[in-house]
Nucleic acid binder design. Structure first.
Lengths: 169, 169
DNA sequence: TTCACTGCAAAGTTTTTGCAAGGAG
DNA sequence: CTCCTTGCAAAAACTTTGCAGTGAA
């Protein structure tokens, strides 16, 4: 499906959602939806807000939050949180499915694709609960951090300062 | 493995971690670790703080945050975030593996167990990245919300007030 | 003795809320 | 014409930071 088709399908879904819930179809809401579907990766409230403004379109922060919540309820956008960073959002349709490797040491996130996981996940059924999409985080230590800790096991005195600082990060 | 064994293993790991990183073994840190391993489910910084205080043990909020971060780095505790709620923590060892069904409508979380998923997940390998544990969230609409929305599709006028209020939740 | 750790209070950051003005239905 | 929405500013909620005193090594 082309990006444009994905976008217009999303607009249709959103319109239906708004109608069904007796909510208003305001220009702000559609402007935000369009922008979200133009972006091809994660974004935060702030970056979306900035992107809209740099397009010369003024929307308040409140409205961005508001609309993203609606879009999330309409299953057009997902919201995720990594560590203690601000919430990240991304459109649901039109993105290839992916999962996240998160380093517990440095917080770095790497995206991965794995069809075996996808197959298992998409076959899930839970009685009355209707799954729409899933989120998988795999925590561990990235190679860089693993190497670092192997190194520090030796030069104990030198790394002293580093480990102390880490604590307050 | 019994709860006590799990706990003392955790204390051993923590001690090793502290030594290796040249950090101090303070009573506060061990008190927090013990409490964490006494709890058998999710907790927040606040509930842990309260639990310690009701035991008559005074630790500051700062120290709780601090120590939980250390425990997370030592892979003894995991940190997760559901929706916009405060971060939830839980011990890693000694809890049976489980995943979460999250309702995108009302935010309710239900724990589930599924050995097929566990099998797939535990077999994962990603080159130099060493997986320690995983986190799976399955989003969808819970039966209660599904029923509610089916109902509101009809009695449009009556539900008007409800949908409006939801927006600012 | 040293300097990492604790606790408090103050500051930050992200997100939510109150309210008046505006515009969709 | 109604009342849902917007935008601003103020408030809230959670977390981090600065600093002085304390205590682990």
């Amino acid at each position: 499906m082309s990006d444009d088709k994905v976008k217009s399908a999303a607009m249709g879904t959103f319109t239906r959602y708004l109608t069904q819930h007796k909510l208003r179809k305001t220009p702000e809401r559609y402007a935000i939806l369009e922008k979200v579907f133009d972006l091809n990766d994660h974004f935060t409230v702030e970056s979306l807000y900035a992107a809209l403004h740099s397009d010369g379109y003024h929307v308040s922060c409140t409205t961005v939050y508001n609309t993203l919540e609606l879009l999330a309820e309409a299953t057009l956008v997902r919201r995720r949180t990594f560590g203690r960073q601000p919430a990240q959002y991304e459109k649901i349709a039109g993105l290839t499915n992916h999962h996240h490797l998160v380093c517990t040491r440095c917080g770095k996130v790497r995206e991965i694709k794995d069809s075996a996981i996808d197959a298992t996940l998409s076959s899930l059924r839970f009685g009355t609960f209707r799954p729409a999409y899933t989120d998988l985080y795999i925590y561990g230590v990235c190679s860089r951090c693993a190497k670092k800790s192997r190194a520090s096991a030796d030069k104990t005195l030198l790394t002293n300062k580093n480990t102390a600082k880490k604590q307050h990060k």
